[in-house]
């Protein structure tokens, strides 16, 4: 269970992005955050694992307060929250396997990891996660030699390697060829169904959102304008989310 209460974020120098967001996400949900660019979707996702520090409000995961956590507890909370980014954010010069192994950093002994040594069991976890996204054969390639779609799959494997309860995905298909959108979203759905993970995914594409979500949350200018199942998304709701009668 993820409980978000009164979450507000003002980014420096003085840009208000989120205005008192309240949201409860139950385990196993596939939530898609819908909204135009600039609606606050990215900031919202980054507040959940505190890559962005909220100005006010709280985020709690399984009853543990992320907002008030000290450094050690925050790392412990973060390792159970996988994150996928629009730009994949792989370390380009590192191998595919090394990128996925980074997902184990919260679990492995610190000192050996700094020397680049990982326990065999963690290597096995990383390889299994690569297999889950169908890239086991590319484990030893350099990350930047892969195509965009493949890189995003490596990023998903890295998130899975964290053995997470929750995965946050910030516009995971926005920098990919439209033809690849389905393949990435399919993998995310499989993770949601097979592993029972909670997913919070931001999307600006309506059709994709409706096809995959179990629940749609519509953001408009830092506020929640809609919250309900995809079947309840009527043209009027779309207008509400995308706002001002503008084409989506």
């Amino acid at each position: 269970m993820i409980e978000i209460t009164g979450l507000s974020v003002v980014l420096p120098p003085a840009v208000p992005v989120l205005h008192g967001i309240d949201l409860v996400v139950r385990p196993g949900e596939f939530v898609v955050i819908l909204g135009r660019s600039g609606a606050g979707k990215t900031t919202f996702l980054r507040s959940i694992n505190r890559l962005v520090t909220p100005t006010a409000g709280t985020v709690a995961i399984a009853g543990r307060n992320v907002t008030a956590a000290g450094p050690v507890e925050l790392r412990e909370l973060r390792r159970r929250i996988g994150m996928i980014f629009q730009q994949f954010n792989l370390v380009r010069r590192a191998s595919v396997l090394d990128n996925v192994l980074a997902g184990r950093l919260g679990y492995v002994p610190a000192l050996p990891s700094l020397l680049g040594r990982f326990p065999a069991t963690d290597r096995d976890v990383a390889l299994a996660c690569l297999g889950e996204v169908g890239l086991a054969s590319l484990a030893h390639r350099r990350a930047d030699t892969l195509s965009g779609g493949e890189q995003q799959r490596v990023a998903i494997a890295r998130a899975l390697a964290q053995s997470p309860d929750v995965i946050l995905a910030d516009e995971p298909t926005a920098s990919l060829d439209p033809a690849l959108t389905g393949s990435i979203m399919d993998i995310l759905r499989r993770i949601n169904v097979d592993r029972g993970l909670t997913l919070i995914v931001s999307q600006h594409q309506l059709e994709t959102a409706l096809a995959y979500a179990t629940r749609i949350v519509g953001f408009h200018r830092g506020r929640i304008r809609f919250d309900g199942p995809p079947s309840a998304v009527t043209p009027a709701v779309v207008d509400l989310i995308y706002g001002d009668g503008a084409p989506r």
């Binding site: 790392r75 973060r78 929250i81 980074a102 184990r104 890295r158």
Partner: peptide
């Protein structure tokens, strides 16, 4: 950001 999000020190 990505490494930070894994819970790394």
């Amino acid at each position: 950001d990505a490494i930070t999000a894994t819970g790394a020190t």
